[in-house]
């Protein structure tokens, strides 16, 4: 009797959260999976079409372009964010005057909502903006930042600018968890500071590194805000990532929900691997 009561009370506390998450995550996820195997002409009941949506996208060059763009967008962005984050974390782990202020300011880009970060970079990338001002100061020719050739690196830069503090925060927490005695004893044994960095600090940061990179890789691959606000996936298809392609097919061009579902479902295996790997690290 007591046991039953306990079980019931356990579940009442967790039940609302589970219901909410099931209704707004699992149900839509299953629905999108279901749609990707169907055809839904307007005014007719949906019909099962097997793999035909997938056959269609696997034959379409746009799919491969958007898949390539998703990787070209995410991998360099994550790598550079990790490098900047690590550098700043190492810098602000040193003791010096003004460190506190710098630590506070370093989370500013992360504190700015992504869509505002995009507005900041609208000004940077305008032909009269600060981007071309910096180029001309360095003696270089002004460029079309959001033109076909530069659009992808430009939006990657926006992602880096807004996202690196996440790595910095993770790495700083990791650095602070390394006991000082380790460094002291290594110093007594005659290890130089670069040796200590290479053989003590970096190996001990590895768990944090894996988690932060895993999370960031997923969020960057799934990023919709920056491509949408900066270029809308254009010019032509220069910044068309999978999330942008899903959006365009579903809401702008064809209103083809099943095909759009197939786009997002086709990238799910990659996310599933990343999610599995990251959740395992987090546990």
């Amino acid at each position: 009797m007591v046991n039953v009561k306990k079980i019931v009370s356990n579940w009442t506390y967790i039940f609302p959260a589970m219901t909410v998450l099931t209704l707004i995550l699992i149900v839509p996820l299953l629905f999108t999976l279901w749609m990707s195997f169907h055809r839904m002409p307007i005014g007719h009941p949906p019909t099962f079409t097997g793999l035909s949506n997938f056959v269609r996208i696997f034959r379409s060059p746009i799919f491969y372009v958007s898949l390539k763009n998703t990787f070209v967008y995410a991998f360099p962005a994550v790598a550079i964010k990790a490098i900047i984050g690590l550098g700043v974390a190492l810098l602000l782990n040193q003791k010096f005057g003004g460190r506190g202020i710098l630590r506070g300011l370093s989370i500013l880009p992360w504190a700015i909502p992504p869509f505002i970060a995009c507005v900041l970079f609208w000004f940077v990338y305008d032909y009269r903006g600060v981007g071309n001002f910096i180029l001309s100061t360095l003696g270089l020719k002004p460029i079309h930042w959001l033109g076909y050739h530069y659009a992808m690196p430009s939006i990657i830069l926006v992602n880096i600018w807004r996202g690196w503090p996440f790595f910095y925060l993770g790495f700083l927490a990791g650095l602070q968890a390394i006991p000082a005695e380790l460094h002291e004893s290594a110093e007594i044994d005659g290890a130089s500071s670069s040796q200590r960095l290479l053989f003590i600090t970096l190996p001990l940061l590895k768990p944090v590194f894996l988690i932060v990179c895993g999370l960031s890789l997923m969020w960057t691959m799934g990023d919709f805000v920056i491509p949408k606000m900066m270029t809308g996936g254009g010019p032509v298809d220069a910044t068309l990532t999978i999330p942008m392609a899903t959006y365009k097919i579903a809401f702008l061009m064809g209103l083809n929900y099943p095909l759009a579902s197939a786009y997002s479902v086709s990238i799910l295996p990659i996310f599933a691997i990343l999610i599995y790997f990251t959740v395992k690290q987090l546990e």
Partner: peptide, 20 residues
């Protein structure tokens, strides 16, 4: 389950959520 929800990329919900 909750961790899965935390890392889940929300763009996948865009289409089904609109219909639902």
């Amino acid at each position: 389950y909750i961790l899965f929800a935390y890392v889940f990329p929300p763009f996948i919900l865009m289409v089904p959520m609109t219909i639902i």
